[in-house]
Design a protein around this nucleic acid. Structure first.
Lengths: 231, 231
DNA sequence: GTCTATAGAGCGATAGAC
DNA sequence: GTCTATCGCTCTATAGAC
């Protein structure tokens, strides 16, 4: 198996070093933007080991992806459960349980969530492999959260919930994908790489959106003319 | 110049065919996911012509990008102006002026907005070239809309506006980036490639989010309801 | 303007020594 | 397990014929 310790510093095996470097580089440049040689060089190992351990570049991506999925979905489920202990969770709590782990889990040394950025960047590259990975690893978790949201928002149809969840995913992914123009536009006052600040801005925004009245369906233009501010 | 007509069908020059194919393929697979040969083959021309007309693959991307920027920002500005004619535009109108062109302008034969997808997919690939293109082509337009939003939402600080605009961009980009899990999850009832349905769902959602009270800043957890829980 | 042909570099994968 | 060496392929870019 994996040797985890040697001498006084944590020295990983070549396999673990490859995984760490791959997660970092894939998340920065996407699958097609990085070569096996880049990853091996960054890990300080021979590039032939990628074939030995993972069977190739695609196998390496799949391993990186699945390696990070479990902690993320588990943390989401754990938070949701902790909020459901005494009573039905509030909308804000459900959103927090889904979003916060995305921003915090498996962060690198700069506090950035490598895995969220990885998912964001890969969601652009239209790979059949990735689509399968996403469906296999996330559909169950997403259904759980959609159900919790529906319970919390009985005035909405399931379609409305799904639309709004789609927009939520957009906000999360885009925040994870960086770089962010608002960082420059705000003169560095708004920093989407700060998970705490991001969550405290994102959750109230999304909660208000979810609480909006159901859109007239299908496909009518927004009619509120004189701003009947609801909530 | 460009020969636009020949016989009874519109026959473009090689240059135009390359641009059209490049826009389509870049938007589907990203910059690194497509080769110059792919583009040339799709356009039915010789691959050497990419070098002749655009100086290389990067030059081709820059041309595609800028070619689509002008109609998009112009349409946004036109809509915003038309809504500002008689009175101050409503929040919904500002959002519509920004979002609708993203979903509708320069659509391909299937109604998909090629250019929005292109921007979404490229926003992942961390290219210095792209970052420059984005800043050059969009900052001015974005400032206009942020200013209009600020006028409409005096209870919010400029930082709050920028955060919420960031989330809006996430929803738009993610919608443009496809493929969309909610399409399958909803049994094809929610179709983010339909611009009209998307706008009619997105605008009320985002409007409610923008109207939410300002988040306590910095970095406090959401307090509405009886939610003590937080970090 | 459009073609053929190819240079020159980099890619993923793997065979085989140790 | 880890290395060296290399195969076979694809890439971008360009030189030069027409």
């Amino acid at each position: 198996m994996v040797k985890v310790k040697k001498a006084n510093t944590v020295v990983e095996g070549a396999r673990e070093k490859i995984l760490a470097s791959a997660a970092q580089l894939f998340s920065e440049h996407g699958f097609n933007g990085v070569s096996v040689r880049d990853i091996a060089a960054s890990a300080g190992v021979n590039s032939a080991l990628v074939g030995y351990y993972f069977g190739g570049k695609q196998g390496l991506l799949a391993e990186v992806y699945m390696r990070h999925c479990t902690p993320l979905t588990q943390e989401r489920a754990r938070l949701l459960k902790s909020f459901s202990r005494d009573a039905q969770p509030t909308l804000e709590q459900i959103l927090e349980a889904f979003i916060r782990p995305s921003l915090e889990v498996t962060t690198d040394e700069h506090g950035r969530s490598t895995f969220t950025r990885l998912r964001a960047i890969l969601s652009g590259e239209n790979s059949a492999l990735l689509e399968q990975l996403v469906a296999d690893n996330f559909d169950k978790s997403i259904r759980t959260f959609v159900t919790a949201l529906a319970k919390c928002l009985p005035h909405l149809s399931r379609e409305d919930i799904l639309w709004r969840f789609h927009f939520l995913l957009g906000a999360v992914y885009y925040t994870g994908s960086g770089p962010h123009r608002i960082y420059a536009l705000s003169h560095h006052h708004c920093d989407p790489s700060d998970p705490v600040a991001t969550a405290s801005e994102m959750i109230p925004f999304l909660a208000a959106g979810f609480r909006a009245p159901a859109a007239d369906f299908p496909a009518r233009s927004p009619k509120p003319k004189a701003v009947p501010a609801k909530r």
